[in-house]
Design a binder for these strands. Structure first.
Length: 462
RNA sequence: UCCUCAGUAGCUCAGUUGGUUAGAGCGGCGGACUGUUAAUCCGUAGGUCGUAGGUUCAAGUCCUACCUGGGGAGCCA
């Protein structure tokens, strides 16, 4: 007989048919006559109840049906006599696939703290919460590819190992094949990278944007979706050293088109999850974050507030509230300022544009006022900045001037500059942190709980 | 990296002004129970009190350092 998944069985309408089920035991209840075994196989958040008449099964077998064990059951799918489920399986045969010693199996029937489950990341997929989170993570990954594919974007795989460290997006992990006990040195005593694998210093990427621009300036619209690495010693619930990022980049596209895309994209992803992950979202709404569904619907149904940095600074200076950090034109906004704008003042997502050039990256399009650049940050409730992007500077001389001012080595980025030399066009793009998106959509408050195996300072188990 | 809180049974925690043999609930194990839903009831085992020093007649409790974790901040996605 072909195995049916729990998802299939719960949707199956042919009562009294014979079925084969395989899965992991979540709980076992019962009395001296009958055992109720909840089986979950991860295909859906719900478990299915297997009913075993104890007279029909040897005691030695039933003793091995413990929380965490894997079993195979054949039997009839029947209407449940009890409350709490519509259907259940009346077991005819039970086989143990894998034992699970209840003395040492870490997961109990009862709920665990997220901290404890993080230390058991290899097993936490077997819990309702993490099953839901990682099914949603998959759905979002798929929806992202679908969204861009349906709109004529091409997925571009930008390199994970990069020779350039000019992007200025934080500390990088070095990539080397040197024996660390005997690193080659030149006559001056410096590390001799000509001896290293690539013949030059290399790092793990902090962004695929610069390479993404090269693709967009030929294919019109591209997006990257890959791992990204930051060696910053950040210890917060919103940072990991290895995370996934989506970076669309569009030629013939200005900052307004860019904002339109960002807003439409985020709303599409929320709608996709609401449409395809109802059970998981309902569980999370009930157990993790009671305001989740309401917040998702609200964000989906209301236009994002669009304001310039300068307007935001004015609002903050007039705010009837004391901030720990002062507000002044030219200073970057602090987390408390962003949260005030999103959660108190506008009470909806906010897109801020036209930031002071001094606090933004070299490649951003310079405005005519000589003071601001066409940057754009999308700010969300609870998690803050979810998207950062800009229109890019496509004029060669302006770009070169800015690079000199900011001491970005032009020779290292000669290939980037050539796109401005040969057929340059207006273009824009942004970066979306995949895990931050998942946090927002699942209501999980720690980024370590939305990536299967988080990498953080002093932590790379599993 | 800075600030702050925490680390006691498998899990979640309590533990008084420092004072005898360190407690509970849940989970595990044994038993009872004819349909359970985090089942219920009875019984039972289980501890190097994060690590290393120090103060004291006496430290889970006070002090110092370190480690690990949570929250806040910075950096950012």
């Amino acid at each position: 007989m072909k195995r049916s998944t729990v998802k299939e069985l719960l949707a199956f309408t042919e009562i009294n048919s014979d079925v084969l089920l395989k899965g992991w035991v979540r709980t076992r209840r019962g009395n001296n006559q009958v055992a109720f075994i909840a089986i979950n196989d991860g295909t859906i958040i719900h478990s299915i109840q297997v009913v075993a008449d104890l007279q029909s099964f040897p005691e030695e077998l039933m003793k091995r049906v413990t929380t965490g064990s894997s079993i195979s059951v054949t039997g009839k799918l029947v209407e449940s006599m009890g409350k709490g489920q519509n259907v259940e399986i009346q077991a005819a045969e039970i086989r143990i696939l894998g034992d699970s010693d209840p003395e040492v199996y870490p997961l109990q029937k009862k709920g665990h703290s997220f901290e404890f489950l993080r230390e058991n990341a290899h097993l936490r997929f077997r819990t309702n919460t993490f099953g839901a989170v990682f099914r949603i993570r998959h759905a979002l990954a798929y929806a992202i590819h679908k969204y861009y594919n349906d709109r004529g974007f091409y997925c571009l795989h930008t390199p994970i190992i990069t020779a350039s460290d000019a992007e200025g997006a934080g500390a990088m992990f070095k990539v080397t094949t040197f024996d660390l006990d005997g690193i080659p040195r030149n006559k001056e005593g410096d590390v001799d990278f000509t001896e290293d694998f690539f013949g030059r210093p290399t790092n793990l990427t902090v962004s695929g944007q610069l390479e993404g621009e090269l693709g967009a300036l030929a294919l019109s619209s591209i997006y990257t979706f890959g791992p990204t690495f930051r060696a910053e010693n950040s210890n917060t619930p919103r940072h990991v050293a290895e995370f996934w990022m989506i970076e669309p980049e569009m030629a013939f596209c200005d900052i307004t088109d860019n904002m339109d895309l960002a807003e439409d994209f985020l709303k599409y992803l929320i709608r996709y999850t609401l449409d395809h992950c109802q059970d998981d979202l309902e569980f999370l709404n009930k157990m993790v974050d009671k305001g989740l569904l309401e917040r998702l619907r609200f964000v989906m149904e209301h236009p994002f507030e669009r304001k310039t940095y300068s307007e935001a600074v004015e609002i903050l200076m007039k705010a009837d509230r004391k901030f720990e950090f002062q507000v002044e034109w030219g200073l970057d906004l602090q987390a408390e300022h962003e949260r005030y704008l999103v959660e108190q003042h506008f009470k909806r997502p906010v897109i801020l544009t036209d930031y002071p050039r001094e606090i933004k990256a070299f490649y951003m399009k310079q405005n005519d006022d000589g003071k601001t650049v066409r940057a754009m940050d999308v700010l969300f409730p609870l998690i803050g900045e979810i998207i950062g992007g800009s229109q890019r500077e496509e004029e060669l001389d302006k770009l070169q001037n800015r690079m000199r001012e900011m001491k970005i080595p032009e020779d290292e980025l000669w290939w980037y500059l050539e796109t401005r030399k040969f057929g340059t066009v207006e273009h824009s793009g942004f970066g979306l942190g995949f895990e931050r998106l998942i946090m927002f959509i699942t209501g999980m408050s720690n980024i370590r709980d939305v990536i299967p195996f988080p990498r953080t300072p002093k932590s790379a188990e599993f």
